[in-house]
Every structure is written in structure tokens, then in C-alpha cells.
Design a binder for these strands. Structure first.
Length: 334
DNA sequence: AACGGCCTCAACCGCTCGGAT
DNA sequence: AATCCGAGCGGTTGAGGCCGT
């Protein structure tokens, strides 16, 4: 059982890379592309393990890497994202163009962490050391972002499967390509199968579920007054971004929450149940439904237990929405 | 100039995850 | 189901540079 370390072989070099090694690696990737890192060193004539080659390429040699000083905007983005995501450097790096996770991690540890500490802000919690106000704000946003990341990961996996299926079914699917409908206007139509585009055609991108963009772009935060089978999918909330947040009252309390964009719905477990207010999701085969907000479920659950006052429910959610808005307008961190 | 402590960041290590067999 | 393997992630290390004395 277990696996041997990739650098166990005697004779493999470790430590700093020489310019000659860099050139060999770049030449090889330029000709053959990256991938199959384990086999790459032998083919490229390098006495390095594949892992070392991969890191060298990703963190240093890749041509699209942005190097040099971090801008103020980048610093602010890192701090805000760290407040949301914690030490998830790769997730943070996806929001900073051409910066590597390693670079961001190093910059956080050597600069930003210290700066926040000097400012009297706990770099782990992002709260002022003597003031806990605002913790709910970040906590809730972190839940949304966590759900988004979980959902995106699922969508990427689905997308990969789709691509593989596309390749294998390419010839059979050409005639069906135009039957794909991802528009919310088509949510009520029925399509018999998941129809896939031909290989030569531009593939559909996974739906964008970027909560951060939604906040920064001014998402439409909606509380559905009364959800019925007739009014929900036929009149989905309109948003300036691709994303809308939906709160679902049921029997005088909020029993679910969800995010919806053009083609995808993420919701709490009880939001996703087939029988809320009589909605049957099986009637909407083109809608990707994802259970994402498992953590928010706990929040909703605890609310119902400790408070059965309708007005307080509204106040509670209004507070959350205001917190999100104030975060967009001006972060409490700065 | 020499020394020692501190800082930076490229690179490594250990681990997890997902796909293939 | 068990195992192997490639890839990726986050934490840590240590060589080299910087700076104060």
C-alpha cells in the first residue's frame, strides 16, 4: 500500500533550477505542451522529478505569469478573498489575473498578514482584535462562496464528462446541437435528452456562479413573497449580474435559500426538495439543480428553532442583505 | 569590513482527491 | 472494492539577500 515519493530515485536533482534546466523545460513544453509530468523529465532530458518540473513551470516559467509588485487593488482583493475563503490560495489565485497561488501565499505570509496585525486586525478572522462587529457579514459571505466553489467544482466535473461524451458521440450528435437550451426562458420547455454539441463547435461554458462578481456587480437579492409552481420558473428574478439570491418563505418562516443564474440553481437542501410549495423540479429537465448550501441550512435551522416571529425573520435576513451591500460599498477591513 | 539576525520567496514535502484499472 | 497513479493543494523549509550594528 501507499506510494513511493516521486523524487525517491537516486540521481534526481533537487534545489534551485539552473537557466539551462529552465530552457530545457520551456523548449519541451513549447514543442509538446504540458501534461504527463511524471514522464516529462525523461523526455525533456532533465534529471528532475515530474513534480519539480510542474512546480517550476506553473510558478515561474509559464509565460502568462505576472511578476513584480502587487498593486493596491490586488492587495485589497487578496485580503477580501482571504476573509471569505481562508488559506485557499488556489481559489484566491483564480480571482487575480496571472498570479500564482504560491506567489499569493508568500505575499500574504510576508506582507499582508503582518500589515493587518499592525493595523490591529486579526489576520485569521479579519476582525478588529477589540471589535467583533461584522463577523456575521463575513461568515455568511463565506458560506455563499463556499457553496459556489463546491458548485463550480461539480460543474467542472460535469463539464469534463460532457466533453468526453462529446468526443465519443461526436458524429451522432451533430444534428442535435441546436436543440440545446440553457436560457431561463426555456426552463419550462421539455427536452427529452441532454443533447451535446459536435466536437468542432464551440463548447458551452459551465454556468458562471461567481458570487464575488455578483456582489461587486450589484446582484439582485430577492426575497420571493410567495413561490408557486406558476410564478417561480416562469418569472425568474432578473439581475444585473448573472446571479440572483432567492430567499424562500414558507409558512411564515424562511425555509430555504438559493442562487439561480441562467441555467443553474443552487439551493439549500430544503430548497431543493421537490415538494416546496408544490414545485416539482422534475418538470424542469434543463435546469441544473445543485444542493450547495449545506452550511446555510444550519443557519436557517437554528433560526427556526430560536425564533418564530415573522418580523424578526425579516429583520434577520434584511440584516444579512445589508451586510452584503455594505461589504460591496466599502469593506470594513479597510 | 565583518558579523548576526531578519526577510523573502523558490522549492520541497506531505497529504488529499479523482480517475483508471 | 482495492489499489495505483497523476495532479493539485497548502504548509514548511532553507538559501541567499538585506540591513543594522
Amino acid at each position: 500500500m501507499g506510494r513511493s515519493p516521486c523524487c525517491e530515485k537516486v540521481g534526481l536533482k533537487k534545489g534551485p533550477w539552473t537557466p539551462e534546466e529552465d530552457q530545457k523545460l520551456m523548449d519541451y513544453i513549447e514543442k509538446n505542451g504540458c501534461g504527463s509530468w511524471r514522464a516529462l523529465p525523461t523526455k525533456a532530458g532533465l534529471k528532475r522529478c515530474g513534480k519539480s518540473c510542474r512546480l517550476r513551470w506553473i510558478n515561474y516559467l509559464r509565460p502568462d505569469i505576472k511578476r513584480g509588485k502587487f498593486s493596491l487593488q490586488e492587495e485589497q482583493t487578496i485580503i477580501q478573498l482571504h476573509a471569505l475563503l481562508g488559506n485557499r490560495w488556489s481559489a484566491i489565485a483564480t480571482h487575480l489575473a496571472n498570479r500564482t497561488d504560491n506567489e499569493i501565499k508568500n505575499y500574504w505570509n510576508t506582507h499582508l498578514k503582518k500589515r493587518l496585525t499592525k493595523m490591529g486586525i486579526d489576520p485569521n478572522t479579519h476582525k478588529p482584535k477589540s471589535n467583533i462587529f461584522g463577523s456575521a457579514n463575513l461568515s455568511h459571505m463565506a458560506q455563499w462562496e463556499k457553496a459556489r466553489l463546491e458548485a463550480e467544482a461539480r460543474l467542472v466535473r460535469e463539464s469534463k464528462k460532457q466533453h468526453q461524451q462529446i468526443i465519443s458521440n461526436n458524429n451522432n450528435n451533430i444534428n442535435n446541437y441546436n436543440n440545446i437550451h440553457f436560457s431561463p426562458n426555456n426552463l419550462t420547455t421539455t427536452t427529452t435528452t441532454n443533447v451535446l454539441p459536435p466536437l468542432q463547435t464551440k463548447l458551452p461554458s459551465p454556468p458562471c456562479l461567481d458570487v464575488l462578481k455578483a456582489w461587486q456587480g450589484g446582484a439582485n437579492w430577492s426575497i420571493m413573497p410567495k413561490i408557486t409552481k406558476d410564478n417561480f420558473f416562469d418569472n425568474p428574478p432578473i439581475s444585473t449580474s448573472n446571479l440572483s439570491l432567492i430567499m424562500v418563505p414558507n409558512n411564515n418562516s424562511i425555509t430555504g435559500a438559493g442562487l439561480i443564474d441562467n441555467s443553474c440553481l443552487i439551493g439549500t437542501e430544503n430548497f431543493m426538495e421537490n415538494n416546496i410549495n408544490g414545485i416539482s423540479y422534475s418538470n424542469y429537465p434543463n435546469l441544473n439543480t445543485i444542493q450547495g448550501f449545506t452550511h446555510l441550512d444550519h443557519v436557517l435551522g437554528s433560526r427556526e428553532e430560536e425564533d418564530d416571529n415573522d418580523n424578526n425573520d425579516n429583520t434577520y435576513w434584511n440584516t444579512i442583505l445589508k451586510s452584503c451591500t455594505s461589504f460591496v460599498d466599502g469593506s470594513s477591513v479597510f
